[in-house]
Amino acid sequence: MKASDFNYVCPSSVEEATSLLALHGDGAKVIAGGQSLVPALNLRLLAPEILIDIGRIGTLRYISVADGMVRIGALARHVDLLNSQEIAEHVPLLAEAITYVAHPAIRNRGTIGGNLAHADPASELPACMMALDAVMVISGPSGERRVAASEFFLGIYETALAPDELLIGLEIPVTAAGSRFYFHEFSRRNGDFAIAGLAAQANVRDGTVESLRLAYFAIGGRPTLAAHAAAKVARQPIGPAVIADAQSALAEDLEPHDDQQASSAMRLHLAKVLLERCMSDLVQDQEMKRKALQ
């Protein structure tokens, strides 16, 4: 099972990369860590004419915090995020979510940019971007543009990136002091893609939840914000009746799909279970959880 033949080019700047993309059009694929792309190449599910390896563009490998914003370069690897004190402190949701991504050898190589641009609906990180209200920084022939995560993920392996554009980084607002998060997924085995997962971020005051963002993944073709369900719990004292209300609302928010692991009905059910577990977690003190990440 060997990949089809392809040409290979290794640009040293974003500009060079985007002009190569413009030049080669559909025949080109961008490779960063390659952890999703290379399996597809080896299986001959993809047979590009040319690979554009952005892995040596040093300017895309950074994690920084300034002005209330966490900025992450597209080439930051999963393991870089996992080991980052800044991430643990300012976006603990992301730090926790990374531990669910695949296995150490994959996390050592896979990049966040590659993960997001690949837009696998079962992936953890796109949902985190939605929950964290992140912005994708995109470079193209006409310069840079910014797209909110909620506008970026369009479908299965489909994003707002034009064929000649490159995802070069992302910006995540530093989460407010005292804000809370929840992350969980149901996967058959450790590191497998999830059958259903939830990334959530909220502010909790006096036992009520505010500005809750519930981002589901592996349910439907793209990560989905469950706005109706979130509205049901907003500023309500959290109890069984409120949770049940919100669970019912999930049917309006989600379009669960069928596959070999789970039917759509099972996915909707698991989404409800996640919601209940999320709500009971959010109202707990999270000091221990945060400490464990640091």
């Binding site: 085995r189 450790n190 070999q260």
Partner: peptide, 16 residues
């Protein structure tokens, strides 16, 4: 055969 690869055919791994 709809799951004839190691991502979809689930073998037992150490964690479980």
């Amino acid at each position: 055969l709809t799951n004839g690869n190691m991502a979809d055919y689930l073998v037992p791994m150490a964690a479980e």
